[in-house]
Design a protein around this nucleic acid. Sequence first.
DNA 1: CTTCTGACGAAAT
DNA 2: CATTTCGCCAGAA
Length: 120
Amino acid sequence: MVEPQAVPVFERVYAVVCQIPVGRVTTYGQVAHIVGNCDARTVGYALAGLREGTDVPWQRVVNSQGKISLIGSDQRHRLEAEGIVFDARGRIDLSRYGWSGPEQAWLEANGFDPLWFWNR
DNA sequence: CTTCTGACGAAAT
DNA sequence: CATTTCGCCAGAA
């Protein structure tokens, strides 16, 4: 059992992002929601600090409108390679590809607060 | 110590 | 649809 507050926020963000399944996406706000005690900006800051070649699937995090924030990156191609389809406006259908969060058992085992998450 | 700066979000205007 | 406001991490200057 990991102590939640003992792990830096950025590390907690990475832990959650690594749980997003292939072919699914989630939003900055949702990750912040799961991590707790931080906001969407913090998630962006955390991902911005990743190095090239990281194992963290950062491409699976998009903004609340289902759009890519990193224009000019290969994020869209990475997602399309996972089977995700973009509409004519360049948006992803979150009701179809959206991921709501880890299993409660995972949250408990990794020092997150399941109750806080589900009650919100 | 203070200020600035980035992959953001939701509600109000 | 466009803007503004607030929320509040971490490192550099």
